[in-house]
C-alpha cells in the first residue's frame, strides 16, 4: 500500500512538475526555439527572384556575407562586422569607465539619497529610444553649440556637426546603455566588504593594488552582468546607429534589417543574424574566461 501511495504520489508529482514548467517551456519553444529554427533554415535557403527564400538549401547567403558578389570579392560586409564589433567594445568600455565610479559614488552616498540618485540614472531610459536619439541629433547637429565647440577645438571641420558620425553613434550607445551597467554595479558595490580594502592597505598595498585585490574581484559579478546587459544589445543595436550614424556607417543590425526590408534578401539577412548570435555566444565565453582569469571564481559564472 505504501508502494502504491508512493507511485500515485510520484505521478502526481510529475504532473505537478509538468504543470509548473509547461508555461515556460511552451513560451520558449514558441517564441525562441521555433523562430530561431526558422531563421536558421532561411539562412541556408536560396534567395528567390521575388525576394522570398526558396529551396534548394545552399551556402550562398554566407558566401555573400563573406563578400563574394556579382563583382567578385569585396570586404564591405566584413567592415560592417568589424565596425560593429569595434563600436560595441568601445561603447561597453566607455560605459564601464563611466558607470563604475558613478555606481561606487551612489553606493557611498547617504542612504536616503541613494534611491533618488538611482532613479536619476534610470529615468531617461523610460523615454522612447527613438525620441532620445532624435534629442541627441538636435544637440550634435551642425550649428549647435556643441558642434561649434568641437569645431573651435579642431576636432571636426567647421559646419560639419558632430552628427551624423561614428562619434554620435558611440555617444548614443553609451548614453542608452549606462543604466544597465550602473544598476548591477551598484548592487555589488552596496554589499562591498570594505574590510578587504583595509586588509590590502594593511598588508602594504598601494592604491592600485588595494583596488585590484580589495575591490575589483568583489565587483566582477556586477561587471560581468553589466557587460552582458550592455554589449549584447549594443552589438545588435539598430535604432541608434541608424539615426545617429546617418546611414553612412552601416552596422550589423542595420545590415540585417535592410535585408528583410528594402533589399528583400531574407537568406542573407538570416545568415547575418546567425553570425550575430554566434559572435554573441563567443563573446559570452570570452567574458566567462576573463572572469575566471581575474579570479572571481564563484559568482562570476554566467
Amino acid at each position: 500500500m505504501a508502494k502504491a501511495r508512493a507511485r500515485t504520489g510520484g505521478w502526481s508529482a510529475i504532473w505537478h512538475l509538468l504543470g509548473l514548467v509547461a508555461p515556460g517551456v511552451i513560451w520558449i519553444v514558441v517564441f525562441l526555439v521555433a523562430p530561431a529554427a526558422y531563421l536558421m533554415t532561411i539562412a541556408f535557403m536560396t534567395n528567390g527572384s521575388y525576394g522570398l527564400p526558396e529551396m534548394p538549401l545552399t551556402l550562398a547567403a554566407f558566401k555573400q556575407l563573406a563578400g563574394y558578389g556579382f563583382l567578385g570579392w569585396s570586404p564591405a560586409n566584413l567592415y560592417v562586422v568589424g565596425r560593429t564589433l569595434a563600436q560595441t567594445v568601445l561603447a561597453t568600455a566607455a560605459v564601464i569607465l563611466i558607470a563604475y565610479p558613478v555606481a561606487f559614488y551612489i553606493s557611498r552616498a547617504p542612504a536616503r539619497l541613494r534611491p533618488l540618485m538611482l532613479l536619476l540614472v534610470v529615468v531617461p531610459s523610460w523615454t522612447n529610444q527613438v525620441i532620445r536619439a532624435i534629442g541627441w541629433m538636435n544637440i550634435l547637429a551642425p550649428g549647435t553649440p556643441m558642434a561649434d565647440l568641437a569645431a573651435a577645438l579642431g576636432f571636426i571641420s567647421p559646419h560639419l556637426g558632430l552628427y551624423p558620425s561614428q562619434f554620435a553613434v558611440a555617444l548614443g550607445l553609451v548614453y542608452n546603455f549606462l543604466p544597465f551597467m550602473v544598476l548591477p554595479l551598484y548592487a555589488v558595490f552596496e554589499r562591498l566588504d570594505t574590510a578587504q580594502i583595509d586588509a590590502a592597505r594593511d598588508l602594504g598595498a598601494g592604491t592600485w593594488d588595494a583596488f585590484r585585490h580589495g575591490v575589483l574581484p568583489q565587483t566582477l559579478p556586477g561587471l560581468a552582468a553589466g557587460t552582458v546587459l550592455v554589449a549584447i544589445p549594443a552589438f545588435g543595436m539598430y535604432v541608434i546607429p541608424e539615426l545617429l550614424g546617418g546611414g553612412k556607417n552601416l552596422m550589423l543590425g542595420s545590415l540585417v534589417a535592410r535585408q528583410f526590408a528594402a533589399a528583400s534578401n531574407w537568406p542573407f539577412g538570416a545568415a547575418a543574424a546567425l553570425i550575430m548570435i554566434v559572435a554573441t555566444l563567443v563573446g559570452l565565453m570570452v567574458l566567462r574566461r576573463l572572469g575566471r582569469r581575474l579570479g572571481g571564481d564563484s559568482g562570476v559564472m554566467l
Binding site: 578587504q196 583595509d198 586588509a199 590590502a200 585585490h213 580589495g214 581575474l294 579570479g295 571564481d297
Partner: peptide, 14 residues
C-alpha cells in the same frame, strides 16, 4: 603593523 580583522577580510579570489 599588521591586523587580523574581525571578519577576517580574506581575499576570495586568491
Amino acid at each position: 603593523v599588521n591586523t587580523v580583522f574581525q571578519s577576517y577580510a580574506l581575499f576570495g579570489h586568491l
